[in-house]
Design a protein around this nucleic acid. Structure first.
Lengths: 163, 163
DNA sequence: AATTTATGTCAATAATACTGACCTATCTTT
DNA sequence: AAAGATAGGTCAGTATTATTGACATAAATT
């Protein structure tokens, strides 16, 4: 009488039923999002490897190219990482000549970040396969659906507290 | 005459113009996807912290719950990681009683993976905030747009070679 | 019997991230 | 002008997730 099968047994029974739309949760789209992002970020990896950079460098190069003159604080806020994490990556990009720092004209404590010509080229090269993938995913989609996808992605972001 | 401003100068000129739709590349949607995914995966972090688990554990628990009886090889293929990477995470989940292994009934080399009751509960708890976020992002979207978003996400995946 | 396959394990390493502490330069407030 | 706050940099230590390479075992296939 020592063998239990209830919740306090040493070996709880394994469940054989797939987890499906329990409680109105759409597991399919959760997975679709995972797979989509996994493959989306894998595109630039081959290009990055040539420069000895990783995905963190990609993100920095991208946002500095999109917002030239942004400060280090701006970048930290965008990436939601700590300055110690950013430091290594940013230093390597500056040392390699992809990004330049300029002291802020008003506030000289600030370091305004700008891409160099090769920084711009790198950002474009990295965006290119991602853009092609997106275009492929949109094939046959109406303008309404395209706008709907963008609205969906916007809606997935955290709401900011004080904007 | 020693100071150069051309491409071979030591300090290439920084570019001040934002990178915009160069070459028909839609940078906005690339960013939207980045922000959306960043916040999407951040939801379960608070829950995972309580169990001392990370995002890797989340993915394993999710897929085992979705496909009970899947083998280790299936899981490696889904996650696209090495078995050494999986080993630590899977071991912790088994030791903590969230996942069980059963030798394959036909091929006894295989280890079929099943969630326990608490494994199922964990997977549901992790999916719940993500599902709420998705529902919020879909607010006001037509059925056509909802289907369009799913089709878009499916289209973002790599095409398999041999299926 | 030999080989392949599924899985597990040991060791070393890399990339990205974290916390905590401390420093300089510069701007703001008193 | 002195005190304090802010922007940024740096040093040290640690955690998580991932990698490659090598080797081991059990069970299936040839």
């Amino acid at each position: 009488m020592s063998r239990q099968t209830g919740p306090k047994a040493g070996k709880p029974e394994p469940l054989a039923t797939p987890m499906e739309d329990t409680g109105g949760i759409d597991f399919e789209i959760i997975e679709l999002f995972f797979f989509a992002y996994r493959d989306f970020v894998s595109d630039p990896d081959a290009i990055l490897e040539k420069s000895g950079f990783g995905r963190a460098h990609h993100r920095v190069v991208h946002f500095v190219n999109r917002n030239p003159g942004m400060t280090v604080a701006d970048l930290l806020d965008t990436l939601k990482i700590t300055k110690q994490s950013l430091a290594r990556v940013l230093k390597q990009l500056i040392d390699s000549g992809y990004i330049r720092q300029v002291a802020g004209p008003e506030d000289r404590r600030q370091r305004k970040l700008y891409p160099t010509k090769s920084g711009r080229e790198l950002a474009l090269a990295l965006a290119e396969p991602q853009s092609r993938r997106i275009e492929r995913a949109f094939e046959g989609a109406s303008a309404q659906v395209r706008e709907g996808v963008k609205a969906f992605l916007r809606g997935m972001r955290d709401r900011k507290k004080a904007d």
